[in-house]
């Protein structure tokens, strides 16, 4: 069964996926860039020496990425669901033609 909105739905879905993946890749690279250890492997770790000093450490960046990724995913899920509903809002459930 070919619905009138099918093409629009598929295009929007793929665009949404591509946009989300792109955003995610940006955050991923930021986290990798700032989260990597310093080049000096023997530098002592100092976990609690002030927030600004520890900002570059992996834990903070990991949490930040987590937070951003959660927001991103909620946005994606919400957008996808709205897409589903607006495309099929008024249509009756058609019989399966497969």
């Amino acid at each position: 069964m070919r619905t009138p909105n099918r093409v629009a739905y598929w295009t929007k879905t793929r665009a949404l996926m591509a946009a989300t993946l792109m955003l995610w890749l940006i955050f991923f690279s930021i986290a990798v860039f700032y989260g990597t250890p310093d080049s000096d492997p023997n530098a002592p770790q100092n976990e609690l020496s002030g927030f600004s000093a520890s900002l570059s450490n992996s834990y903070v960046w990991g949490c930040f990425l987590f937070f951003v990724a959660s927001v991103l995913i909620s946005w994606f899920c919400g957008a996808q669901d709205r897409l589903d509903e607006s495309s099929t809002g008024s249509s009756q459930r058609p019989g399966n033609t497969l």
Binding site: W24, S58, C77
Partner: peptide
């Protein structure tokens, strides 16, 4: 994660989290 030397587990944890993002965006639906 913060006690292993050289933050060695950081990339593992990062990739581990990112996999869920990939899973949700690419495969879930």
């Amino acid at each position: 994660v913060i006690f292993l030397p050289e933050y060695i587990s950081f990339p593992i944890v990062l990739g581990w989290v990112s996999s869920l993002v990939l899973c949700a965006v690419l495969f879930a639906s």
